[in-house]
């Protein structure tokens, strides 16, 4: 008799497509959070698969800190056009100009935390009742506790100790007016799964993920890309190195790693041998042991 078995990547794909379709079915106005990073690109790819041959039945939402790598924005605009999706951009700069948030000062100033307010404002303005995110449980220990369908109260807050039980594949998206959900279709994926899937599906990525020469400054162990928003301080020296980025966030808090990986195969080999977590390059997570949990409670991604 024929054996009906799916390998792990197909199982994860099927699960993610199921979750994306549940989101479309259970919510009135879902949005897909799109940053131009690999996880959100994989999400958009899965969304195309889930609703093919129809278009993705929700908007893409990008919270733009103004501190993006130019390569990311260029990629974002081209990608969105190619898949025929509609994109809403919410600018952290607007939140600053309106006085909704106050910019941090000093050389470690980051707009990372400010994004939460911009995100929650955008969710309210556009009346989104679900925001699909590319977060994975393997990324960080607070995220390991997150549900696929994660409830947010009227203030956008997450209550990690009072989460709804989630059993089998029965996702409960019922909510009162004003509340919303964060939905994480990639919950069960690991960094390696994402890369293997990108390779298997031949998904196009921003060039930042691949090794290239770049002027960087070593700031507390993070190799930050020198730019308008990351200036070399008098006591620092910059140098040109061959680096790539394992995650893509703000230029102010995303560090590169020394790498010669120019192809997906190289990257997969590098990920397999990596001795640091992916988010080890993110200084936003290093602020304290509970940095992610604290931000998430307030409504972060």
């Amino acid at each position: 008799m024929r054996s009906y078995k799916l390998n792990h990547v197909r199982q994860l794909e099927s699960e993610a497509i199921f979750v994306l379709r549940e989101t479309a079915a259970q919510f009135d106005r879902p949005a897909l959070l799109f940053s131009g990073g690999k996880d959100s690109i994989v999400m958009a790819h899965l969304a195309r698969k889930a609703f093919h041959p129809a278009r993705i039945p929700f908007m893409l939402l990008h919270v733009d800190t103004g501190h993006n790598f130019p390569e990311t924005i260029e990629f974002r605009d081209r990608f969105v056009k190619e898949i025929g999706a509609s994109l809403v951009v919410a600018y952290v700069q607007d939140s600053i100009d309106k006085g909704r948030v106050v910019e941090e000062q000093g050389i470690h100033a980051s707009r990372n935390k400010l994004q939460t307010v911009t995100l929650l404002d955008a969710i309210e303005t556009h009346q989104f009742d679900a925001a699909l995110g590319g977060g994975r449980r393997d990324e960080e220990k607070a995220r390991a506790k997150e549900r696929f369908f994660s409830h947010r109260n009227d203030f956008g807050e997450w209550d990690p100790k009072g989460q709804r039980p989630e059993l089998w594949n029965l996702f409960n998206g019922r909510h009162h007016h004003g509340e919303h959900f964060r939905v994480f279709p990639l919950s069960n994926w690991t960094e390696m799964d994402v890369w293997q899937y990108i390779k298997h599906e031949a998904i196009d990525l921003p060039s930042l993920y691949f090794s290239h020469r770049r002027e960087v400054v070593d700031r507390h162990g993070s190799l930050l890309a020198v730019s308008d928003v990351v200036r070399v301080q008098p006591d620092e020296t910059s140098e040109e190195r061959t680096v790539r980025f394992r995650t893509i966030g703000d230029m102010t808090c995303t560090g590169g790693v020394d790498s010669a990986a120019t192809s997906l195969d190289d990257i997969i080999a590098e990920v397999a041998a990596a001795r640091e977590t992916e988010r080890g390059t993110r200084s936003d997570d290093k602020r304290s042991e509970s940095a992610m949990e604290d931000r998430k409670k307030e409504g972060y991604f």
Binding site: E140, K141, A142, A144, K145, K161, E289, S290, E293
Partner: peptide, 16 residues
Amino acid sequence: GLRAEREQGITIDVAY
């Protein structure tokens, strides 16, 4: 993974 868990040395919620 949660602060309350580390403080109390117990596991509160399912973690994956």
